[in-house]
Write a protein that binds this DNA or RNA. Structure first.
Lengths: 224, 224
DNA sequence: TACATTTGACAATGCTTCATGTCAACATTG
DNA sequence: CAATGTTGACATGAAGCATTGTCAAATGTA
């Protein structure tokens, strides 16, 4: 009896273990999602299109992701962490030279967007217009970035006098400045050289920090 | 013959001329669109819902607007211009005191968003994820704002030395700072007092301008 | 070779939306 | 009151989409 409840035995196929095959499919779907969402936007893309891009069928989509939003969330999360890791690593390498750290962080940030312009749209635009959950996730990410920036400057310049200002708000503003510059830069097809963009953003950072009386970051960047 | 091409004669109804009725319907649809798009977002709203909100039927929607996007575009355009006019007017009134002008402009900007938080989402979020046309429109609006800001500071501080920086990029950054601060402020349910938000944004402006060697805007805002 | 699993192509279902059309009730004019 | 424009409620059609299901061919296992 009980024939209907037999579990099918999973096995290798084309010399690849079942878990590996599934991981590969998931990977292909993530890449396809990055491509589709990053170029046409979340709302302009169907599951079918993603599957066609990944050369898989809908069945495998729902094998790895509950729905369209789950795929976007996974892509978003991965790209955020990739970019964050790259930036953090380059910042750490420049310790403890504050100016070099800030410049390297900006440099890597913009370089990451130029290397793959698709992620700009995903990280800064689409994520805000999908659902309350995704919006909240984005909000936490950028808030975390602001918090990091705040702690970063306060650790570097403990003597700083912020004159009654709110460092968290200032950090939010600086993050917004970078994001807006990045969006316009991407949107313009990278009209300016990377160094120009990085230097101008750094100049805003430096101006704000030096207005707090901190000494190190004042020097304006000369053209190398 | 030719009975079928008879045009119906338009006439008054409930004491109101046909053009006025139509204008009123259009008005109600714009208000309903503002409410719906501003709270649930463009993609979370159907034509039916907007009509229900406006207490009109679909027929009257398509009387005034070609499609969903046209309504959003009209709402966006109107709210941009309303806010811009308010800000410009308050800036003009403070001429030529640069500090007062900048502070008044920021003040009115944030006040406009607090008065009607729905427009924040429409102006800064949804417009970017509808179509290439709407994205371009938003891009032109914020670029125009950056351009205005640039001319504004250059006119006020003609002696300014920007040390090889790109004023257009800096202005883009400053606009982005305001927008990001505004979004987080709205999103937090206006956690900070308006004056705090305004002062902190102004501090970023002042820091950047004073880093260019301009004298007037240096003074940090004391609590009134 | 016999049989079970995996895969791809695609059909089927059920739902939602946009956009247009129908029609009877109501308001206005003459 | 009669004729006609106006309105609201609802029907309809066409399309798109998410999700599940079917089935035969390809592939691995015993």
């Amino acid at each position: 009896m009980d024939v209907s409840s037999e579990k099918p035995k999973r096995r290798t196929f084309k010399g690849i273990a079942p878990e590996d095959r599934q991981r590969e499919r998931r990977e292909k779907l993530m890449e396809a999602g990055l491509e589709a969402y990053g170029s046409r936007g979340y709302h302009g893309v169907t599951v079918k299109e993603i599957c066609a891009e990944a050369k898989l069928t809908e069945r495998y989509f729902y094998e790895s992701f509950k729905d369209r939003e789950a795929l976007f969330g996974a892509v978003y999360q991965r790209e955020v962490e990739r970019l964050r890791e790259r930036v953090l690593q380059d910042i750490r390498q420049r310790m403890p030279d504050a100016q070099a750290m800030a410049r390297a962080g900006l440099d890597t940030f913009f370089q990451g967007l130029r290397d793959d312009p698709r992620i700009a749209r995903i990280l800064f635009v689409d994520v805000l217009s999908i659902s309350a959950e995704m919006t909240g996730q984005s909000w936490r990410v950028t808030s975390g970035l602001s918090g990091f920036l705040m702690q970063f400057t306060q650790a570097l310049y403990p003597q700083v006098r912020t004159n009654g200002l709110d460092p968290q708000l200032i950090a939010t503003g600086l993050v917004g400045a970078c994001i807006n510059v990045a969006m316009h830069w991407v949107n313009s097809g990278f009209a300016q050289p990377l160094e120009t963009v990085r230097d101008n953003c750094y100049a805003i950072f430096a101006a704000v920090i030096s207005s707090w009386g901190a000494p190190a970051a004042v020097k304006l960047p000369g053209k190398k």
